[in-house]
Amino acid sequence: MIATFERVAKWYGHVVGLVDAHVEVGTGVTGLLGPNGAGKSTFLKLLTGQLRPSMGTVRIFEKNPFTTPSILRRIGFLPEPEAFYESQTGRQFVTYLTRLHGFSAGEARRRADDVIERVGLAEAARRPIRTYSKGMRQRIKLAQAMAHDPEVLVLDEPLTGMDPVGRRQTIDVIRELGENGATVIVSSHILHEVEAMTEQLILLYEGRVRAWGTRSEIRSVLDDVPHRIRVGTPRPRELARLLVDSEHLVAVRMDGNSLVIETRNPEAFYDHLPAVVLDEGIPIESVEAEDVGIEAIFEYLVA
């Protein structure tokens, strides 16, 4: 294992940051998922030695990152907040931070140029950061995290503010890093972003690690919980009558001009629905899965 948390707790005065976290992180990409305030940033700060745990031990490469700053040569970190000298160009920013890893000015410049090209910002590299869009800022932050070829990359909400193309490119870079043997820990509160990068997840909620493992392992835990689907129709009562005998359904209830359906097998329900509505000529305005969001999953986990 590259990093381990053993019974780790962190309090900020009376405020809980993280409680009783026991996690092991290996190579490849690991998604750190949780809503805002779940303890993701605390987790990452502990991992990168910026905080000392109130209890328990954090190890990375078998060393305590808080008391061993030299271990940070092997770690790249992308913080969530903006942390720039706005008048610096992207190239100056990455070069400067790379020099702090012990590289000479020339070597740091060479690495900065390489990595800026890799994140697709070569054309904007000599522009001041104050002229960058939110997505470009995220990419230049990713560049500074990667410039010294770290074995572990810790990325706090790296996709925030990126356009779809930038998002795609960044996800590809992260996946490629994971496939090449790096350990990448990516925090996000958006499930599908993480799903696009990895199978390996750590789920945090209210400062506690609710589950960790592969996606299928965690999903299997949640299989007992029915999925909720909202179907918008002007004739909800008729639709309910037609669907109520379906073997996949657990519950059906009307909510204004829509029908809220709970099912343990959503795929089978989606297959079954078109046939029913086409036979009876019931107009359908919308079909929306209500509980695929991370918040819903956490609600289940907490329950």
Binding site: K45, P79, E82, A83, Y85, L100, H101
Partner: peptide
């Protein structure tokens, strides 16, 4: 002061510097 304002301390101390 500007490092505190820009939250740059997090970037500095994610490097191997004391």
């Amino acid at each position: 002061a500007e490092d505190r304002r820009a939250k740059a301390l997090r970037l500095y101390f994610s490097r191997p510097i004391t």
